[in-house]
Every structure is written in structure tokens, then in C-alpha cells.
Simulated assay, not measured.
Amino acid sequence: MKSPLLSLPGAVPAEGVDEGVAAHYGDLFREQRALAGGAGFVDLSHRGIVAVSGADRLSWLHLLLTQHVADLPAGEATEALVLSANGHIEHALYLVDDGTTVWAHVEPGTEGALIAYLESMRFFYRVEVEDRTDDFAVIHLPAGSIAEAPEGVAVRETPYGRDLFLPRAELEAYAERYGPAAGLLAYEALRVEQHRPRLGFETDHRTIPHELGLIGSAVHLQKGCYRGQETVARVQNLGKPPRRLVFLHLDGSEVHLPAAGTELRLAADGDDGRKIGFITTAVRHHELGPVALALVKRNVPVDAPLLAGDTAAAQEIVVEP
């Protein structure tokens, strides 16, 4: 779905899964600095929006999601996962309840599969699941923004900023209120700095929550049964997830960033060393320079210099081994 905000001056379209919104508006680092300072907004209108209403919405979702939402207060933001039977991450939901409806935004293109799963689990519960992507869109206001949310709009307020579920038909009008616009590249650079994993970027078909440090933020350990809970409990008790998320400082002399999927090796072993991980997201940060998130094997020494292809990389711990 192409955003009307691509008509803003300087807008350069994003590609891949983020197609439909702007990658940037002509000045990546200026846009990053504005967001870091609490100014402007990010167009996230390409993300899917799922709404769950009905008297049983919270108790029903509590049975299906990894997060404790049975008593979620109205207006309190949280995030949750849907896991496979083997405990692998299938969906990530960023949600808030407005008192009558749970609003969640999800990765672009995943809302159909998520809704199909939720519908299959409705049974006798008094709930209604709807795809509201055509009617509503997400705008992100950074932490520190003094902009006010329109009355009656669902808002997810987190330490990283506020996500507003706005009527899609009014996006352009709201953009004039919240400018200047910042693109996805600026938003992603701050996400990487904040060590926040993203579904489809830091995850693959076998990712489990412990590898990404999602216990607590998206997975509650003191709640009832949900699909995949056995794996979560086993890894929690044994303390041995096979991989761990790391933050990497990349050699700034390289012209090109390593692509997602670039193999990581121990620098001491050189190009002939065995693969010990891979890049998930690499970005250019306005202060830190080139940085990345990556998944490495759990037993990789935390102080070991790495090679991302031909690019030297130094680790910072995100998930303890």
C-alpha cells in the first residue's frame, strides 16, 4: 500500500518489505538527529493493523500470546509474540487496549496469516478479529516529542516513543502537524542503537525468544499455557539458547555496509574460519557510524573480534551467553 506521504519533498521510496513508505527525505543523518532530539515523525503506514474487540478480547488473547494481557490496563502499551508448537517466533505484535478494542501493528504483509491463526482459535469466545490496515495507519512520534495525539486515537506509549493509530484518510493532514518527516532508514538506525530486534530481520525460521532477549518485554514467564511454552520453559531452566543477539561496531573505512545474511567469522581465523553467525541489520548511525545487529553462536567469546565478510567488527553484549 503506497503512502500518500511519498509525495512529500525529497521522499525516496523504501524497498523490500518496507516498500510503500519513504526510506529517507534527502538527509539521513539530519532525520536521525531530529528523531533523537524528539522532533518529527516516522511514517509506518505500511505496517499491518489488527484490531480485536469483544468482551473476551483480553482473556482470549492471554491464552494465545506470550505476554500477560488478561488484566492489561487501558492505554498501557505492551508487545507479544505468537510462537510455533516448537517455540519458534512466528508473529510479533505491538499492541495497546483502548478500553473497547485491542489495537496491534505487525510487520507488513503478516496480518493475513496472523488473523487466520487467531480466527482458527476463536471457538466460543466473544471476540471479533478485524484487519484494519485499509482504514488506519501507524505514525511514530519519537521519545521526547511534545506533539499531542488527536482525541480518540489509540496510542502506544513506550520508552522509545509513541505509535499513533490514525485514520489513513487523514495521514497528510496529520503530517503537516507533526513534521518534519523522517524516513525508515533513520528509524532503523535508532532501532539498532536501541538493540531492538525486528521480526524477519533478527529472526529466521528457528529463532526462539531467549536468543533475542525478549523474555520480559514480550514473553511473560508467570502465566498460563500458550503454544510453544514448553520450549520457553526448557530454555529458561537450562539457560542455553543456541544463539545470542549482539550489537556490532563495524569498521568505518568500508564504503559499503555488509548486507543482511553476511557471514560472521572470528577475526583470528581469517577468511578460512568457520561461520559463527551472521549480520541481521546493518545501518549508518549519525553518531556511532556503521553499526549492526547480528546473531552469533552462544559460545562465541564476548570479547572476540569478528569479521563480517571482509569488514572488521567489535561486539557489544545484548544477550548474555
Results as ranks from 00 to 15, higher is better:
residue 108 P to H: 10
residue 105 H to A: 07
residue 193 E to F: 00
residue 18 D to H: 13
residue 73 P to E: 07
residue 177 R to Q: 15
residue 187 Y to K: 04
residue 100 T to A: 13
residue 264 L to D: 04
residue 39 A to D: 14
residue 65 L to M: 12
residue 318 V to N: 04
residue 51 A to V: 15
residue 308 A to R: 01
residue 124 F to D: 14
residue 143 A to K: 12
residue 100 T to E: 13
residue 100 T to M: 07
residue 178 Y to Q: 01
residue 154 A to V: 05
residue 223 K to Y: 04
residue 317 I to A: 10
residue 316 E to A: 14
residue 303 D to N: 15
residue 171 L to H: 09
residue 40 G to Q: 06
residue 133 T to S: 13
residue 57 R to S: 06
residue 140 H to K: 13
residue 64 L to W: 00
residue 204 D to L: 05
residue 94 Y to T: 01
residue 178 Y to A: 01
residue 308 A to H: 04
residue 277 G to P: 01
residue 24 H to Y: 10
residue 82 V to K: 05
residue 48 G to S: 12
residue 221 L to I: 15
residue 108 P to I: 12
residue 2 K to T: 14
residue 38 G to M: 08
residue 191 R to M: 09
residue 6 L to S: 09
residue 244 R to L: 01
residue 244 R to Q: 02
residue 241 P to S: 10
residue 224 G to P: 01
residue 140 H to R: 14
residue 245 L to F: 07
residue 172 E to W: 11
residue 33 R to N: 13
residue 171 L to F: 11
residue 109 G to H: 08
residue 73 P to Q: 09
residue 212 L to F: 08
residue 165 F to I: 05
residue 83 L to A: 05
residue 264 L to C: 04
residue 250 L to T: 02
residue 72 L to M: 10
residue 21 V to F: 06
residue 303 D to I: 11
residue 177 R to W: 11
residue 45 S to K: 07
residue 260 A to V: 04
residue 266 L to Q: 11
